[in-house]
Structure formats: C-alpha cells, structure tokens
Design a binder for these strands. Structure first.
Length: 569
RNA sequence: CGGGGCGUAGCGCAGCCUGGUAGCGCACCUGCCUUGGGCGCAGGUGGUCGCCGGUUCAAAUCCGGCCGCCCCGACCA
C-alpha cells in the first residue's frame, strides 16, 4: 500500500478524552475513531491488525476445534430457559421485533451453543465436541472506558466444549490452555496465567490469561519465587502469625464521639489501624452476616460469596441499625446474636478495639475468641507483601488486563437446556461443558500497553498492520524514489506486508509518523542510495544499520523470522 | 446510579467572571521556497459556540432544562 493513497489519519496531539497509552496511541495512529461511548470505528490500520490477530486465533483454534457462526440476535426464550434473561439485568441489550417479541443482543453464547448441542447430539460416540466462533458480542457496560479496553461492542473468540465426563473436560480444558499459549505467544505478548474465580455457578476450575498493565482492571497476586499467581478475587495469603503479646485486660466501653471510620478512630485513639477490628454488616438474602477483618485490610466480597454460597451485599444504613443497634462506624461483634465471620489474621491478636454497638462508643481490650466466637474464614483481600500461600515468600500485587479466560462450567447449562446423549449402556447422560473466551481487541490493546514509548508503539510483525514501512526521505529525488519503489516491489513479491511512504512530506513528519503507528521495521531510503545503501531500523530498539539495497529482502526476511520467538512473562 | 470535570473549526486550546455579533496554534487548500526528526514566507477554506427554552435592544458569555463525552466509585460473564 502507498501511504499517499491510504486513510491513515495520524494526530499530533491526543484527543483530550484519552488517558491510557493504548487509547491515546490507537487514536493518534489513526487505528480507531470513537462513534459513541464504548463504540469505535476500526479504520484501515486498526482493522488490518485485528484481522491478523483473528487469523492467528483461527489457525490455532482450528487445531483443536470446529468453527461455527451463531447469531448475535437471540430470542428471549432461550435466555429465559437458563434463567439468565433476568440475571443479566441491565447489562443485556434488549429489543423487540415487529410482532412485539422480546429479543436481545448476545453477551455470550453458552445458551445458544447448548441449544444447538441439545438438538444435534444424540450419542456418546459424538463426544467430545469443541465448537468455536469469532463473533461480535454486545454488553451494555455501566461504564465503558479506556478506549478499546472496556467497550459495548467487541469481537470475541468464544468456544464451548461438550464432554462425556470430568476426565474428558480436563482434556478439552488442557487443549484450550495450550492453544491459548500458542496464540498469545504468536501475538508477541508477555502474559501470565492465573487462577481465577470460578463463579457462583459451581464451576470447578478457571484460569485467566493476563497482561500486566496499569491500565488493567484486575489485580493479580503473584510470587516471583515459586510461580504462584492468582486473581486477588480468590488469592489467599499464607496465615501470618505475627508474634504479638497477649493482653488479658477486660473489655471496656469508652466514648469516641463522632469517630466513625477506621482512620478517624485510629487518629482519635492513637492506635494503629491493624489493632482495630473492621466490622461490616452484609446481607446474604435476608440474613445479616457480620464480617470482621483487620482494620488495615479489606473485605473480599468474592471470597465472602464463596463462603456463604450466595452473593452478599453491604447492608443499608437502616438494616445496620436494626440488626446491631448502632449506625455504621460503631458496629462490633461483642454481644451480637448473628452469624459472625472473621478473618484468621485476627485470631492471634488481643487487646483490640471495635465498635460497641452504641453510637459514639467503642470497646477496647477486646480479645477475639474470648469476647466473641466467630467462624474463622478467609475473607480478606490479599495485599502486596503478604506471604505466598505456597512458599511463604512475599507476594506482589499488580494490575493486569484480562485477554483470555478458560472455564470448566460443569453441567449448569447442559442441564438447563436439557442436553442429553445416550452412553455406552444406553443410559441418558448430561454432557459436561467448558467455555473459553479471548477478547480479540484486547490483544491489540494489551500489546500497545506493553510496547510503547513517548513517540508511539511497536507491534510484533505477526499482528502489525504492516511489517515494514519504506520511508522515502525526499519524494522529489528520483534516485531515492526509484530505489524505494524497487524495494517496495521486491518485498511485496517476497510476501512481506509493506507500506510505502511516498507522501510529499518533510522527512521529520515521515519519521514521526513511522515511529507512531506500530510498524516494527523501517527501511529509510535517503542520500546514501548514491552508494547503493539504505537504512534498516528496528522500532523496538531503534537500532539503525546501513545495508546494500539488494540485501534488503533477505535481511528483512531474517528479522521477521527472529521476531516470532515466543516470550513468556 | 452517586461524586467530579468537560462540550467553541478535524486535533489542542483562548474568549465566558464584567453580554456588543468569534479568535490562536496545528491540520487542510493555492503559490513560492525547502528536503535526515513534526521547515519558512504569502494568500486562503472551514465554526447554527452540544441542544431547547428564558432574560435582554443585543447571548459563546447570564438563568433554567435536556443531551453527549471523560475520570473516580458502585456494577461487571
């Protein structure tokens, strides 16, 4: 492609509403334009890159699965069958057809795939089946953000496995694990694989593929020493028995007028936050549950839901008063007749401070186990520096972008959708299901988050819109133009994706643009063509070398070869 | 949905407080000049100032309502 003919609308300045690097550069490099909140036009370069990512995904998925293509527009009935017509709530785009029938735009396809399985699968001999599609998903996100990172319409590779039993599911799951590694390796990403929350639906196992980035919305706890890695939604820390002197003084009430938050009480009393008990009232259905963690810890609602076997929400102010007798800020476990859960970090501490269940008062010299008897369960959110549950070394906590998720679903959907096959004994059985997703645009976004500097970004040749840009320093110089045209033709003939910058612009403009738009290699055709030389520039390292014109195709082929080597985080 | 910010030319912004009929830089067009890191000179094109209503002789500017976008939080298969 000739740059002079292409729509590559680069911007010198970033639009004011872009904040994260990938968003800024996708806009500046002319990959995307915004249509509305969470909706983007993919322009020439953006679409080219997305298509290359899709090609890699398709190639690797074809090794383990069959590609299908299911509708994005779904009748309500099928979602009502699984119960998710209600569960999905406002996140689902809903509409009606001309006969006033309810429809929705697909957020995901478990139901639709299971419906197909129900209609087409009869015998255990047909299992296992792995079906995938690359398709548009619609989610009415409460808050789209960060460019392509969280949007309302996006492309997903989603696949679904149907197996006879758990052992079969293990194999399908493992196949996806390996396929995902190959895909992300080939896209040149540095990623981690972490244990993830398997949901309230009783799934048995789940892993997320994560790319470290401050733009990410997930927090990952990881251990450099032993390789433990988990989403903080479920990460646990090794129990920390900090040696603390035992205090035996009796608990007593004392006035703390107007002191409500941990920070306020700590400042008022001069006592460190970890010597306070944070007491939060949750409602599990209509049942109140008091949850206790150290004053410097946070309650992990995902873990809490797992412990309770159902989702819990923070109690409303009037519920807090009704169940404890005090307003939030003066609540504590002593003397309360409700279910009390406490994190084990409190177990070895004594002489603590907690709310007195009387407005404006706290208790001091409180000893867990003596003054109240909780159930000891892990409900705190792991923090950086906590000890690794596997090896005891300090954990790191960092933000990450989720690019893929694999999930052992169990029989929830096959049961609900009544998928049944006959086994070898002629008995009806319900197949077990897995589901697996890759966010296609997130691969591009994560790659930019990972590989950028102040001038722009660089993509792996496998997913870059072009592998090479040939820059003509002076478009008015016939010798330069001729040499560049030759290189352009030869590279094209060799199967290299090449962009020829034939614009009549000053060299500075062309260099800045070339650095900006993510192309990994550049050939600069300048004054040295007189001696038969051009420059070969690698965007990653910005290394430049003079090479004879005739050697360009060979050298480029070599460089493209090298760069497909997988790099693991 | 709660809190905050913003909306003036394709992009970045000023003007608004103190009302008087819209401006700067970049981009774009024409010509000359220049050609190794966003050249220079000259001349141009382009805006119902987010929308609706009100106040006023007069509204980008003041008042009311609405819409949109961004950020923080809540939410999130």
């Amino acid at each position: 492609m000739r740059w002079s003919q292409a729509l590559i609308p680069t911007l010198r300045e970033a639009p004011n509403d872009a904040e994260v690097a990938s968003h800024i550069f996708l806009l500046r490099a002319g990959y995307i334009r915004q249509l509305a909140a969470g909706l983007y036009d993919y322009l020439y370069l953006g679409q080219r890159s997305i298509l290359k990512i899709i090609a890699i995904v398709r190639e690797e998925m074809d090794r383990i699965a069959q590609e299908l293509y299911l509708p994005a527009l779904h009748p309500a009935e099928i979602w009502q069958t699984s119960g998710r017509w209600e569960v999905m709530g406002d996140n689902m785009f809903r509409l009606k057809d001309r006969f006033d029938r309810d429809l929705c735009l697909g957020m995901t396809h478990e139901e639709i795939m299971a419906d197909l399985a129900r209609r087409e699968l009869r015998s255990y001999k047909q299992l296992p089946q792995i079906w995938y599609q690359i398709q548009t998903k619609f989610r009415d996100e409460p808050r789209p953000k960060s460019g392509l990172l969280r949007v309302r319409q996006f492309t997903m590779k989603d696949s679904y496995s149907f197996d006879l039993d758990e052992a079969g599911l293990d194999i399908s799951y493992q196949k996806h694990h390996e396929a995902y590694c190959r895909i992300f390796d080939r896209c040149g990403l540095r990623y981690m694989i972490v244990s993830a929350h398997s949901g309230s639906m009783g799934g048995s196992q789940s892993h997320e593929f994560m790319v470290r980035s401050d733009a990410g919305e997930d927090l990952i706890a990881s251990c450099a020493a032993c390789g433990y890695a988990a989403n903080v939604e479920l990460a646990s820390a090794g129990v920390q028995f900090a040696p603390e002197p035992v205090e035996n003084a009796a608990a007593e009430e004392y006035a703390t007028p107007g002191q409500r938050t941990i920070a306020e009480v700590s400042a008022f009393t001069g006592v460190q936050p970890h010597r306070l008990i944070k007491s939060l009232l949750f409602m599990a259905g209509d049942k109140p549950v008091l949850v206790l963690v150290s004053g410097d810890d946070e309650v992990n609602e995902t873990k809490l839901a797992t412990v309770l076997g159902q989702e819990a929400r923070p109690a409303h102010p009037e519920e807090i008063v009704r169940h404890t007798g005090a307003a939030a800020g003066s609540v504590g476990p002593v003397g309360l007749k409700l279910r009390i859960l406490a994190d084990p970090t409190l177990q070895t501490r004594s002489g603590l401070i907690c709310g007195a269940n009387r407005d404006g008062f706290h208790l001091r010299h409180v000893n867990p186990g003596r003054d109240f008897q909780p159930e000891w369960v892990d409900v705190r959110t792991v923090r950086g520096g906590d000890s690794c549950p596997q090896c005891g070394k300090p954990l790191q906590v960092a933000k990450a972008v989720e690019i893929g998720h694999i999930f052992k679903l169990g029989r929830k959907y096959t049961q609900a959708m009544e998928v049944r096959v006959l086994d070898a004994q002629g008995k009806e059985i319900v197949p077990i299901m897995g589901s697996y997703g890759i966010g296609v645009e997130r691969i591009l976004t994560a790659a930019i988050e990972q590989n950028h500097d102040e001038n722009g970004f660089w993509l792996a040749p496998s997913i870059a819109p072009f592998q090479v840009v040939v820059t003509i320093v002076n478009a008015g110089d016939a010798a330069m133009v001729n040499a560049a045209e030759t290189i352009y033709k030869d590279l094209g003939a060799a199967g290299v994706d090449v962009l020829l910058d034939d614009r009549d612009e000053r060299p500075g403009v062309k260099f800045k643009d070339a650095d900006l738009i993510g192309i990994p290699l550049r050939v600069t055709v300048g004054k040295k063509v007189g001696q038969g030389l051009v420059e070969l520039v690698e965007r990653v390292s910005r290394t430049t070398r003079d090479v004879p014109l005739a050697q360009v195709p060979t050298l480029i082929a070599g460089l493209l070869q090298e760069q497909v080597q997988p790099v693991r985080a």
